[in-house]
Every structure is written in structure tokens, then in C-alpha cells.
């Protein structure tokens, strides 16, 4: 029998919240970080003026990063690769797994568009040699080629069919984005997202031990279990 949960009353919890020291400037920096990492270029520019924050970030790099992301999300992998190389050729040179991921995405896009012959040719010329490099690449290649077998069938197994999903595009875009951010010595995730992770982690840990007011971020109010 686990020890009984402690109950933290609203008032006590409010004091705890108040004890957390955070200033508006702190929060402004978090917001700035968010705008930059998430690619809101013009908002970041405005914010640096309005809030008087000096950001070490080159705002133009935000834009090219976003262009790359959009190219991937609309399926234009070649354009994305060109743009990544324009930005910094080392990113793909030093990251073969990422480059493979992009090539795989290109193959997927061929298949999605029904350009089967081009898909086959591309696979043979570009991807097959890389599949020999690593078993992981090979298995990914096989999975991708399996798409052809299920081309017109809605019964494809989920692991195969998910390659055609927007999530796959997003994942590829996300990996490229992270690699670019890393090349720019920035965090690969907005700190606000990390903060959400921490909050999920902390609230669920605390939930095992205590009854306390939880935050509903929809409206910024607190609620309590079994109220």
C-alpha cells in the first residue's frame, strides 16, 4: 500500500507558484527562443524590437530553414536538398543518415505521385548503393519499396503505409530542421516545448504522491481532482 497522498491546498500551491522566480524578461527570452526555433521570422524581428531583446540569431537563417521545411512538407525533396546545400553543404556531407532520409523521402514522393519508373530508377541508382552501407538503410529501403506492392491497396500494413503519411514528411522535415539548428549551434527544440515536457513529467510524478491543483493550459486556470 503506497503512502497516502499528501493534499496540497489551493492556497499553499499558490504560494509555491509565487515562489518560482521568473521575470518578464525571462519569459520574453523564452518566447524569443520559441519564435526563432519555430521559424517565425518576422515575429522574431518585431519581438526583438518591441521587447528589446538582442538575439544572436541571424534572422535570415530562420527563413531559409523554414523554406526547407516547407519544401519537404509539400513533397519537393530536390528543392529542399538544394536549399540545405545552399545554406551549409556540410550539413548533408557530415550526416549520411540524414542524407539517406532525404533520398528515401524523394523515393516516397515518386511513388506517391505514381511515377513508378522514375522511382525504380532512382532507387537503383541512388538508394541501393547506400543500402549496402548499412543494414538500417537497407531495411528502410526495403520498406519503402514495399509501397509499390501495395500501391493501389488500402490494406497495406501500417508500418508501410505510414511512409505515405504526412507524419513521414514531418518527421523528415523535423530531422533536417534539427540538423540545421545544430549546425547553427541552436537548441534543436524550442525551450517552451521542453518546458511542456517537464511539466508533463513533473505533474505526473507529483500526481502519484499528492493532490494538487493542476494547470489547464487551455484557459490558464487551475483545477483539482475530485473537486
Amino acid at each position: 500500500m503506497p503512502p497516502p497522498k499528501v493534499t496540497i491546498l489551493q492556497e499553499e500551491w499558490e504560494r509555491r507558484l509565487h515562489e518560482v522566480h521568473v521575470s518578464k524578461q525571462d519569459l520574453n527570452r523564452l518566447v524569443m527562443d520559441y519564435l526563432v526555433i519555430e521559424g517565425y521570422k518576422s515575429a522574431a524581428e518585431e519581438f526583438s524590437q518591441e521587447a528589446g531583446i538582442n538575439s544572436s540569431v541571424d534572422f535570415d537563417s530562420i527563413e531559409s530553414r523554414m523554406n526547407i521545411r516547407e519544401a519537404l512538407q509539400r513533397g519537393d525533396v530536390s528543392d529542399a536538398i538544394t536549399k540545405v546545400n545552399d545554406l551549409n553543404p556540410e550539413i548533408l556531407d557530415t550526416n549520411p543518415a540524414l542524407y539517406f532520409r532525404l533520398q528515401q523521402q524523394k523515393l516516397i514522393e515518386y511513388i506517391r505521385q505514381g511515377r513508378i519508373e522514375e522511382a525504380l530508377q532512382f532507387a537503383q541508382e541512388e538508394l541501393a548503393p547506400r543500402g549496402e552501407e548499412s543494414p538500417e538503410f537497407l531495411s528502410e529501403l526495403e520498406k519503402t519499396m514495399a509501397l509499390l506492392a501495395f500501391e493501389s491497396s488500402p490494406q497495406a500494413p501500417p508500418t508501410i503505409s505510414e511512409l505515405l503519411s504526412p507524419a513521414q514528411r514531418m518527421r523528415t522535415a523535423g530531422e533536417v530542421n534539427a540538423a540545421i539548428l545544430e549546425s547553427l549551434s541552436q537548441g534543436k527544440e524550442a525551450k517552451l516545448v521542453s518546458l511542456l515536457r517537464l511539466l508533463c513529467w513533473g505533474e505526473s510524478l507529483l500526481e502519484e504522491r499528492a493532490e494538487f491543483p493542476k494547470l489547464d493550459l487551455n484557459d490558464g486556470t487551475f483545477s483539482r481532482e475530485g473537486k
Binding site: 521568473v22 519569459l27 518546458l195
Partner: peptide
């Protein structure tokens, strides 16, 4: 959000 996270961890 920030305060809640900080308070959870501290608690």
C-alpha cells in the same frame, strides 16, 4: 506554465 513546472519540481 513556467511557474507550475517550477513548483512541481520543487514540491
Amino acid at each position: 506554465l513556467f511557474r507550475q513546472a517550477g513548483a512541481c519540481v520543487a514540491q
